[in-house]
Amino acid sequence: MMNSMTTSPTVAIAVPLEAELVESIRAAHPSVTVLYQPDLLPPERFPADHAGDPDFRRTPEQEERYWAMINQAQVLYGLPNESPAGLAQVARQNPHLQWVQAMAAGAGGAVKASGLDLESLQKFKVTTSAGVHALPLAEFAALGILNGFKRSAELAVDQSNRIWPELRTPTRLVSGSRLVITGLGEIGLETARVARALGMKVSGTKRTVEPLEGIDEVAGNDGLAGLLATADAVVNTLPGTPYTERLFSREIFAAMKPGTVFINVGRGTVVDEDALLEALDSGQVSYACLDVFAVEPLPQESPLWDHPRVMVSPHTSALSAAENRLIAERFSANLGIFLAGGELPHLVDPVHFY
């Protein structure tokens, strides 16, 4: 780890980023060398398009310049080429690498997919952008809850068919209902804050079971079924790890109250999708709002596409026009910690990849 008494590091901007945000990093840390060559980075197709245009190609000369820039830096802003393969390549080629700031909140999946062994991963640190996406994800979760309680899917079908039902169907009241959040980290706690503003009573799960302000009950994953018995809605924010894979199993869906609304903004591997479909068909789950899936893009043959009580979002709920600015601000703050020799937040565990 660097400290204030050592030579300041070189930072390489490895992914697309607006020039003014690069300048903001330089202004905040004038002693740091920030390498930024925008002609070597693919253009963004939309705000916070960290991978950039997939049709972008570097010339052989540009490719050589790109990796020369990456391999002389101690710190990277983004995974090279925003890919696990890029991370594996820089780990092999850059003996100076000390820290990589990833763009994703769930960057552990990309670190795992790099195929690097534990010895290699212990030579440098990877931090995620966890927390940057908390508010947009919480707002999306609230959208899912409201959609489920207010029958938006049924209303859309009636509208498309120009049907004005003879008998009016009441909707459910969100205020006073019970929400369970799996994963009371930054995203989960922000979701809880938004849900409480809607009048919901919130409980949830956490690896370290401890009292949390504003949360009625906290349990571990082994206590999830008990929490679900009285829940009206469930929001999953958990990352994909060996410990969370298919946590939402047939048994867990069976533990829910009939008519539960289910939202997933964590990772798709946390849910057994066949079990979810069974729960939807039986009415155990009345509505599912899904931003993530076990396989992405969601295969064309998946029944989730056509299910009348499912909303499919293409893993975009965390995106906002402010994302690049927020990640750059997070990186700049982390860079200050790094220079002072402090402990970086949101480190990816090189063993469990969360």
Results as ranks from 00 to 15, higher is better:
P80G: 01
K257W: 08
V15E: 04
S175L: 06
T241P: 06
V270I: 01
W305K: 08
A318M: 07
E18C: 01
S249G: 12
P299R: 13
S249T: 14
F248I: 02
P43Y: 03
S8P: 14
P136M: 07
P30M: 04
R330N: 13
L97E: 07
R162P: 00
E190C: 12
E64K: 15
V271S: 05
Q284G: 13
D158Q: 15
P9S: 14
A275I: 10
P136F: 06
E323A: 13
S129D: 05
P350Y: 09
Q159I: 12
G115Q: 13
L298D: 13
A113V: 09
T33D: 14
Q74G: 08
S175P: 09
L79S: 02
E23F: 04
N236A: 08
E119P: 00
T171V: 15
L143Y: 08
D272H: 14
T191K: 01
N236R: 01
P350Q: 11
R45V: 06
P258W: 06
T244Y: 02
G223V: 01
V34N: 11
T59D: 11
V312Q: 10
G188P: 01
V202G: 03
A68V: 11
P242C: 10
V312A: 07
K123V: 03
N71F: 05
K201H: 15
A195T: 04
P297H: 11
E251F: 11
W164H: 13
L40W: 08
V32F: 07
V100T: 08
L276R: 09
V34I: 03
L41R: 07
P299C: 13
P47H: 10
N3W: 10
G342P: 09
K206Q: 14
G176H: 04
N236F: 03
L97G: 08
S31H: 13
T171R: 06
A91W: 04
R246Q: 15
S177W: 12
L304G: 09
G131Q: 02
F248E: 03
A279D: 05
M200G: 02
V100L: 07
T230N: 13
W99M: 06
T208L: 09
R250W: 00
L304C: 09
R57S: 12
V202C: 05
I70V: 14
F149T: 04
D55F: 07
Y243L: 12
L212G: 01
F46G: 03
I163R: 15
V351A: 13
